[in-house]
Measured scan of single mutants.
Amino acid sequence: MSGIALSRLAQERKAWRKDHPFGFVAVPTKNPDGTMNLMNWECAIPGKKGTPWEGGLFKLRMLFKDDYPSSPPKCKFEPPLFHPNVYPSGTVCLSILEEDKDWRPAITIKQILLGIQELLNEPNIQDPAQAEAYTIYCQNRVEYEKRVRAQAKKFAPS
């Protein structure tokens, strides 16, 4: 494992614990031996107030490669969400998460999670990743928002 990646992720964890947006979660997972795995984080993004996503808490896994922060983490909703920019596998399609697009090593975990929260309610229809959600979003916004509200209710924190 890269010392650069681990040191950056340790800084990220410290900064997150000191200050993070209300309702968001970002925690490194534990290895079988109980030690912390900084390369694999369990996160959760709350649906934004005043949107059909409100009330939901959407679980996301963030996986970092050894060359982080040169390369972005892979962000994957578990379980996958109904959304035009979420692949059926759950992987998020967002330009700041793509090395050859808008990724920059200075982007923080907090910025990534806030960017994904923004994307939930403002899909990028130029870059669809899920045919069904994309089609319904474009053709029947009322039905799309109904499905999103049902999903938010399903993923409401207990």
Score class of each variant (00 low, 15 high):
P84L: 15
N124T: 02
P32S: 12
L57K: 09
L9C: 09
L97A: 11
R13E: 03
K101W: 08
E42A: 14
P84T: 10
L120H: 03
V25D: 10
I136R: 06
L81D: 01
R104I: 01
L97T: 15
S71E: 15
K14F: 06
K110R: 12
A106Q: 05
V27N: 08
M62G: 04
E118Y: 12
P128D: 04
D19N: 07
S158T: 13
V92R: 02
I125A: 08
G50F: 11
P79F: 12
W53F: 05
V27G: 08
M39W: 09
F24T: 04
E54V: 07
K65V: 07
W16D: 02
P84D: 07
P69Y: 01
L60G: 09
T29P: 04
T51L: 00
K14Q: 04
R13Y: 02
A129Q: 04
R13I: 03
G115P: 04
P128I: 05
F155T: 05
F77I: 02
E118N: 14
V142D: 15
E122Q: 12
P123W: 02
Q111V: 13
I4R: 09
W103I: 03
H83D: 04
A156I: 08
L97P: 11
N140W: 01
T29D: 10
F77A: 00
Y68L: 02
P73S: 06
S70R: 09
L119G: 05
T108I: 15
N40H: 14
Y68P: 03
L9P: 02
P80S: 13
L6D: 07
K65W: 02
A152H: 02
E12L: 05
P84A: 12
K48M: 10
A26T: 00
P52S: 13
T29Y: 15
V86R: 02
F22D: 06
K48R: 13
S158W: 11
V148P: 05
K76I: 13
V25P: 04
V142T: 13
C93A: 05
G56A: 05
Q111Y: 15
T51D: 02
R147W: 08
K49E: 12
E98L: 10
D19K: 06
H20W: 01
K74A: 15
R8S: 01
D102M: 12
A131C: 13
P46D: 05
W41D: 00
G55E: 09
K76L: 14
P69Q: 01
L120C: 05
I96D: 11
R8L: 15
T51N: 02
K65T: 14
Y137P: 00
P28L: 05
P28C: 01
Q117E: 09
C93T: 00
A5N: 12
P32I: 13
P79R: 15
E143F: 07
L113W: 04
K48P: 15
S89A: 06
K59M: 07
N37L: 09
N124H: 10
Y137C: 03
C93L: 04
R104T: 08
F82R: 01
A44G: 14
Q139D: 13
D127N: 09
K110T: 06
D33H: 00
N124R: 03
P79M: 13
L94K: 00
L63E: 15
D127C: 00
L60E: 03
Q11R: 13
G56F: 07
Y137E: 02
Y137H: 04
K59A: 09
A129I: 01
T35R: 02
E132Q: 09
P52Q: 11
Q130N: 13
W103G: 02
L9A: 07
P32L: 12
Q151W: 01
F64E: 06
D100N: 14
P123H: 01
P128E: 03
A106W: 01
R104D: 06
K146Q: 09
V25T: 07
P52K: 11
Y134H: 05
R104L: 03
K48D: 03
D100K: 12
G47Y: 10
E54I: 08
V25Y: 08
G47N: 02
E132R: 08
I136G: 02
R61K: 13
A133W: 03
N40E: 15
L119T: 01
